[in-house]
Write a protein that binds this DNA or RNA. Sequence first.
DNA 1: GATGAATGAGTGTTCATTCAT
DNA 2: GATGAATGAACACTCATTCAT
Lengths: 234, 234, 234, 234
Amino acid sequence: MPKLKPETQRARREQILNAAEACFTRAGFHQTTMQDICNEAKLSAGALYAHFESKEDLICGIVRRETAAFAERLSAAATDAKSFLDALRDVAEHYTIHEPREKNRLFMEIGTEATRHAAVNETFRELNTAILANLTSQIAKAKANGQVGSKLPPETIATLIGILGDGLCWRRATDPDFDAGALLPPVLDIIAGILEPIGTDGPHGEQAYSARLSASVPHDQPETFTKFAEKETA
Amino acid sequence: MPKLKPETQRARREQILNAAEACFTRAGFHQTTMQDICNEAKLSAGALYAHFESKEDLICGIVRRETAAFAERLSAAATDAKSFLDALRDVAEHYTIHEPREKNRLFMEIGTEATRHAAVNETFRELNTAILANLTSQIAKAKANGQVGSKLPPETIATLIGILGDGLCWRRATDPDFDAGALLPPVLDIIAGILEPIGTDGPHGEQAYSARLSASVPHDQPETFTKFAEKETA
Amino acid sequence: MPKLKPETQRARREQILNAAEACFTRAGFHQTTMQDICNEAKLSAGALYAHFESKEDLICGIVRRETAAFAERLSAAATDAKSFLDALRDVAEHYTIHEPREKNRLFMEIGTEATRHAAVNETFRELNTAILANLTSQIAKAKANGQVGSKLPPETIATLIGILGDGLCWRRATDPDFDAGALLPPVLDIIAGILEPIGTDGPHGEQAYSARLSASVPHDQPETFTKFAEKETA
Amino acid sequence: MPKLKPETQRARREQILNAAEACFTRAGFHQTTMQDICNEAKLSAGALYAHFESKEDLICGIVRRETAAFAERLSAAATDAKSFLDALRDVAEHYTIHEPREKNRLFMEIGTEATRHAAVNETFRELNTAILANLTSQIAKAKANGQVGSKLPPETIATLIGILGDGLCWRRATDPDFDAGALLPPVLDIIAGILEPIGTDGPHGEQAYSARLSASVPHDQPETFTKFAEKETA
DNA sequence: GATGAATGAGTGTTCATTCAT
DNA sequence: GATGAATGAACACTCATTCAT
């Protein structure tokens, strides 16, 4: 038998990753057995190990894919949305309203796992750093354009936004009664407060964040994150 | 060996919990074996199981203790500090600067575990709810006293503060380069912005958060959380 | 503290044996823990081990007591009943009708255990042998008196009766639908057939076994088995 | 290693069952560890658990096999032997003379275990019922043919025979001095007495049971029990 | 004499990974 | 390349027994 076409290879990898993600999301990393994943992927153990050399590697694959997807979405939102804040809102809505709570749990699981396994950690940080860098550069440009008034360094702002996002995700994963829909507006107001967009009468005026901010923080097209997704499927 | 004094019993429980916490902090729940904990506690397996009926129960014990300690600290800070914001800063400094990063990881681990095990989940949520309620009531009082101007419901404010805390914790656990010292001031500024303390020229003026806020939000003595600590050691 | 009075000692032993028997009957030897027995006897582990040196020893105690009780009953029945067959019927009725099925199970458990543990085996066989000897001597006397016509050696007859009894017990222990009341008459007819009592028109005539046999096999007072019970409580 | 042929699967199961039977026979269920069985079968624990899902399941497998073998033997004897009694004698001789005493112990162990574990109990009873039904139908046919004169219902006769068999087995398992060779003839005489075969001068005449009975109770071909053996190996 | 906490070897079972076919 | 049976080290947990108090 000749070597599988790279195309088939990639598809197979994707299939396994899908199965793994489904299992991990459903039951967590440690409660999921390799056999569970094989069953879900309708593949034999041997076939699975031809593509991922260990369970840890599989986790890395998920981390890579999830994080790349996140970066992608951020990027896409930045392109499509009218303003930086709108983009943020789109992404936040996606992850805390449209996606099921289980996805938030998977994110926690990933972060926690990254804390314990060198390889996962490396993967996780590398991508996180890239996302932060992207956010930072967007903010820097907005500042340069005079559209963001905050005196805080762009990286600090990016980190603050990241913290809010992580906290939101954690809370939803953890608390079944958490109402993301109700919390998102004040959270976006907070972000608006951090950015201190020029040309408004302050972040805490009477207007709703969307009305106030929709046009105020235009942003450049960020560099794409597709490379990470490609890296994964390469 | 006659019946142990309740006092000794409690000490033994504490000793086991200490060992378990050390192990869990070092290696995570799933990587820690009961034997590891026995070794750390210098106790036999049988002795351990006389105090905790399962590994899960041990995790619940840790959750209870950690969360109770957190509530306690929040409560103490509220009593000691000059203002609500100062109290928050004290607590935040403790958990993101004084405590080792490993403690933040343990917190993540706890939250993640709560996501998967019914018993852990129940324990976790019960205590989390109590903490949020306490925070909420403190804020409500401050509003009643006219010291907090925000129009947001107290519970929403409490939740927002919680999200920032969780996010901070997550970030530090996850990112070895994270500089909590640098992030804490802006985070507290954000909180100040949320509270909109009366008698200042707005949350985002020139003054540093400490200067601006130190005397602005006095607060009443919150109800103590000691009951949870007692519950654990009862 | 002075040594316990022998009387108290014996009572304590009895108390433990009662508890053990209750537990063993309820759940079997292997499913019963020493702690179960301690709880049932309302005694500490240490106190129990002051009287029985191991779980096996406890089983031996039960074997001794149960078997002695059986011998006693056989003996008493021989004294009270009008005929040997009546005595057998009384005993059989007791063990397969009056006693709960659980007792039959305990008997099986005892026999099975005797098969595996040297000490239990010795105890079990010693007493079984004595019972068989007693039965044998009763039959021998009946033959000598001309009341039993069978040409089979008395010991063989005794063994055959024993086999029927064991089989009956086994069947009841094993089969919840077993109707001992319906089976006992034919079994006693069989025994009558084995004995071939003189002065009847054969064992399988029209008469019911009791009518046919009630007066036909008078028997002497057998030597008592009380000594075994005493041995146990000595 | 592609999928094993069903044939090989069956052989592997058999190999495990053989090992388990050897161990259980040697030491009893509770004294045998899964590791013992693995060693005996020269198999790893994982391999064993691929075929039997628990120790209890293994016991059920043994019960099924043993009981099926017994039914088979009964069936075969009925086919081969000249008379029903001869068949019974063949089977009895096999189990109480040819087979080692240990097999009798295994039988006791099985029965005792059936008393405590739901799954084992169900398996045990199901097969026991089938055997009894087969015996019953054989007897019913013999009665219909006028070859059995007893007025007892066929089922009662079958149960009585069963009781004698169980008792015999119990006695041999339990008593090392038991001489089955000496007891079998009178036991068969008893059975002959129960059946009351027509055309003889009564069951307790001068002739030995074999001489008297060899031709007296012809019997039809019983339905085979092979189905149970198949069920096990299916 | 009594207590019951402590011991620690041992149990049934699981599961990531390998490799003969 | 794929299969899935096999491996075997671990694991959480138990329980007969001991012995300090």
